[in-house]
Simulated assay, not measured.
Amino acid sequence: MKPSIALKGQLDFVSLAQVIQFLSSNSSNGALVLKSPYINQPGVICFNKGIITNAFCGDLQGIDAAYSLFGWTEGEFEFDVNRVETERVITQSLMEIIMEGARMLDEGRIQELGAENQDIAKPFRPHLEEGVNFIPSPDVDYSYVVEEEIFSPGQNIVEEGNHGNWICVILDGYADVIKDTKKGPFTLCRIGPGALIGDIAIVLKKENVRRASVISVDEVTLGVLDLERIHRELALMSRSLRGVLLGLNRRLAEVNHNLSRLHVSDKTYDIKSLSGRDVFDFNRSDKLFTITQGWASLVAKGSQGYVKVAEMEHGDFVGRVPFLDLGHEPSQAVLLPSEDFAVEELPTEDIVAEYENSSNMIQCIASYISNCVAATTMQIRGTGKND
């Protein structure tokens, strides 16, 4: 069988993080083959339905190989759809891999190939406090930008509790997302170029209260997006896909709330004694459902105990969304339903097909919110402490 190359490009033009996010969001099957001018053997990252299953780099295999490939900032890549490895050796979520790989590269824990032969200037990024994550951003369709605004360092871009009916993209600069808690201001994450400020609920006019403050770290240039254009696209969607996107929006609110709660209380759970509830069985892991009755707690195993990630209610989706990697159920978190819990299966294949045919901006919004959910979930899993 001849290789079938569906995608190819240059790593000095498109970063590895951008490539694997694109392949994941398209539920791709195959092998991403990387070739560097500084090493003879290619590196390989395997995908099955958009999930990274394995990686190879020289003598390394699995997650260590995947991390090492973040040091390949020059060279070529191609995606071969005929090379499929279904056995899952790597269990980390996409966002865990991207964030840890980028962190290891920044800290010098993995080698940047060719760096010893040239003076490489790394992109400027303001100092980040320990425990605060930087959220990677997908590529934004800048044709949606209708106006620009500039904010000075330390200026409030958004204030928690205020109302706002706009969505912006950061064109340049960095900002911190901060939530007010009983212990005072708590930094949820840092965002930079390509990050979105605002959410889908604002577009659909369902809610316009800001859930957190956004404060510029350095000078920030914002691009105001064409809200009416995005609204028209969402209005033409099926109820199923629109429900998944709104559910994704609610998950972000939930994980942010629970991370803030853990900052105050550090509370963990005994999973066996959580109201005596049984774990929802996701034996059909490729299925997607919507909650029609009752509610459920999403619980993940943290570094020192089980922690609540989110509370799900009527209308929320549960199960794996093929084009998003949240680091949630069914593989990395468990669902504890109420006694009256009931679900209805969603038309997953139709939802995927519709999503793949949606605009780049809709996909960007979904991908960015997914990145935020996954990154915040990583913080939740590492925050809980036993009393």
Rank of each mutant, 00 (worst) to 15 (best):
E76R: 15
E76C: 10
E76V: 13
E76T: 15
E76G: 14
E76W: 15
E76A: 13
E76L: 15
F77K: 04
F77Q: 03
F77M: 03
F77A: 03
E78W: 04
E78L: 05
F79G: 00
D80L: 00
D80W: 02
D80P: 01
V81L: 09
V81C: 12
V81A: 08
V81P: 03
V81K: 14
N82A: 08
N82S: 11
N82Q: 12
R83M: 14
R83K: 12
V84C: 05
V84A: 06
V84N: 06
E85G: 05
E85N: 11
T86A: 02
T86V: 06
T86C: 02
T86I: 04
T86K: 04
T86M: 01
E87D: 06
E87G: 01
R88P: 00
V89K: 14
V89S: 11
V89Y: 12
V89T: 15
V89H: 12
V89C: 10
V89N: 14
I90C: 05
I90W: 07
I90E: 05
I90V: 09
T91F: 06
T91Y: 06
T91M: 08
T91Q: 10
Q92A: 12
Q92W: 10
Q92I: 06
Q92G: 04
S93W: 01
S93R: 01
L94C: 01
L94S: 04
L94I: 02
M95C: 07
M95T: 10
E96S: 15
E96V: 10
E96D: 13
E96I: 09
I97Y: 09
I97M: 10
I98Y: 08
I98F: 10
I98E: 09
I98K: 08
I98H: 07
I98W: 09
I98L: 11
M99K: 14
M99N: 14
M99V: 15
E100F: 11
E100M: 15
E100D: 15
G101E: 08
G101F: 11
G101N: 10
A102P: 08
A102I: 15
A102D: 15
A102W: 09
R103Y: 13
M104P: 05
M104R: 15
M104E: 09
M104Y: 11
L105T: 07
L105W: 04
L105E: 08
L105P: 05
D106P: 07
D106C: 07
D106H: 13
E107G: 03
E107K: 12
E107C: 04
E107L: 12
E107M: 09
G108A: 01
G108P: 02
G108D: 04
G108Y: 02
R109L: 06
R109C: 02
R109Q: 07
R109D: 04
I110G: 00
I110R: 00
I110V: 02
I110C: 00
I110P: 00
I110H: 01
I110E: 01
E112M: 09
E112H: 01
E112V: 05
E112W: 02
L113R: 06
L113F: 07
G114I: 02
G114V: 02
G114M: 01
A115W: 05
A115I: 05
A115G: 02
A115L: 05
E116G: 03
E116Y: 10
E116T: 12
N117R: 12
N117H: 13
N117M: 12
N117D: 13
Q118R: 15
Q118P: 02
Q118M: 12
Q118I: 08
Q118S: 12
